[in-house]
Amino acid sequence: MARSMFSTLCAGLKATFCGAGWRSAPRAPVVSESLMRPEGERHYLLALPSKTATGKRPLVVAMHGAGASAKQLFGMAFPPSPLSMWLEIAEREQVVVAAADAGKGGWNDCFAGAERVAKKDDVAFIGAIIDRAIAEHEVDSERVYVIGVSRGGLLAYRVATEIPHKLAAFSAVLACMPPPDRARMPEAALPALIFGCTCDPFFPYQGGKYFYTLGFLDSVASIEESAKIWRELAGLPDAPVVSNIAHRNSWDKTRTTYYLWGEGSDQMQIGLYKIERGGHAEPSCVQRYPYFINKLVGPQNADFEVAEAAWDFFKHKRSRRTETASLKETVEIVEQ
């Protein structure tokens, strides 16, 4: 009895201060990489599947949130991120995954001005990671994806806006688009997957800005307006296909609804995961944040894996550059 009570106490303390993780699948090995940029040496981690490539592989570039790091995103620093599931996906699906490091000053995301970007261009850094992976690691240039969480999600919007020609799709987790009058808006359509929580204490689901975020965060568009911007650019109909994500645990008070515009998984689609009563924490069944963190940022949904949902959205999508080029050639031939 005493041993059982001690074990229960230890498990409770671990969940409170360390979180919990249940991982058993093989994970891709990780190596440290660096690139010389105009602003100096930049760093990132690269997960390469252990099996020899039999063909060109997809690439996912992941961007961490404010105050975090590439190590934290890959589960190698406290608190381990649910996005660390990408290491298992990389090994299982033969995907190359890069976790970029913001470095000093954090990301120059979609709210950063020209003067700040001139000193440290993070979009160009992400573009350089993509170019190097294509040149050195048998990456398919038509299957390149980016995903970012929180401030990294703001950068994902900026990357998708400024270098859409390098991407097949992108995902923003717990991040809203800037209002149209505050930043450059996208001009090229891309498949987009957005995750938003209705009780996020940092990025209001309904848009705007919470007074207590002071000068650390700017006013944002709503999550649904963010999805609408990309949906309208893609020319997709107003009405989505709506599905409820199966609920797993009675103690989890959050609920998730998935909205999907666009029919084919290999075509243009816009997806939105709306997590009712969820806070500023990436959903995960197996990688749980510590209790004290959830008390600070709000409940973490436990019904699905954010990384698996993103990969399911990404995996059949390819860059539309070839399609666009073929269409242009056809038009030119007809005109002649």
Rank of each mutant, 00 (worst) to 15 (best):
M1R: 09
A2H: 13
A2M: 13
A2I: 15
L9Q: 07
A11M: 12
G12R: 06
A15P: 01
F17A: 11
C18N: 07
C18G: 07
G19F: 04
W22F: 14
W22V: 15
S24H: 14
S24E: 11
R27G: 05
R27N: 07
R27P: 03
P29I: 02
V30E: 06
V31P: 03
S34E: 11
S34N: 04
S34F: 04
L35V: 05
L35P: 02
E39D: 15
L48W: 01
T52Y: 03
T54F: 05
G55F: 11
K56A: 15
R57E: 08
P58G: 11
V60Y: 00
M63R: 02
H64S: 00
G65C: 10
G67W: 08
A68N: 12
A68R: 15
A70C: 10
Q72K: 13
L73D: 04
S81D: 05
P82L: 13
M85P: 00
M85F: 03
M85I: 05
W86H: 05
L87N: 03
E91G: 02
R92L: 05
R92S: 15
Q94C: 06
V96I: 03
V96E: 01
V97W: 00
A98Q: 07
A99V: 04
A102L: 01
K104H: 15
G106L: 01
W107Y: 13
D109Y: 10
D109M: 07
C110E: 09
F111T: 12
F111C: 06
A114V: 08
E115N: 14
R116Y: 02
V117Q: 06
K119N: 08
V123N: 04
I126H: 01
A133H: 03
I134E: 00
I134T: 00
I134H: 00
H137M: 01
V139I: 11
D140I: 09
V149P: 00
S150V: 08
R151C: 03
L154N: 15
L155G: 09
A156W: 11
A160H: 08
E162A: 11
P164H: 11
H165T: 05
K166A: 11
K166H: 13
F170M: 13
A172H: 09
L174P: 04
A175N: 08
A175T: 06
P178R: 01
R182M: 15
R184E: 14
P191R: 12
L193C: 12
F195H: 09
C197S: 15
C197K: 04
C199A: 15
Q206L: 08
K209C: 07
T213S: 13
D218A: 15
S219G: 13
V220Y: 11
I223S: 06
I229N: 01
R231M: 00
A246T: 10
H247A: 10
H247C: 09
S250V: 14
K253D: 10
K253F: 05
K253A: 10
K253H: 10
Y258G: 04
Y258N: 08
L260S: 14
G262D: 04
S265E: 11
Q269D: 09
I275P: 11
I275C: 08
S284M: 09
Q287S: 09
R288L: 15
L296D: 03
L296A: 10
V297M: 02
G298D: 13
G298I: 06
P299C: 08
D303W: 03
E308P: 02
A309Q: 13
F313G: 06
F314R: 00
K315R: 06
H316E: 12
S319D: 01
S319M: 01
R320W: 05
E323V: 14
L327W: 09
K328I: 14
I333A: 13
I333M: 08
Q336S: 09
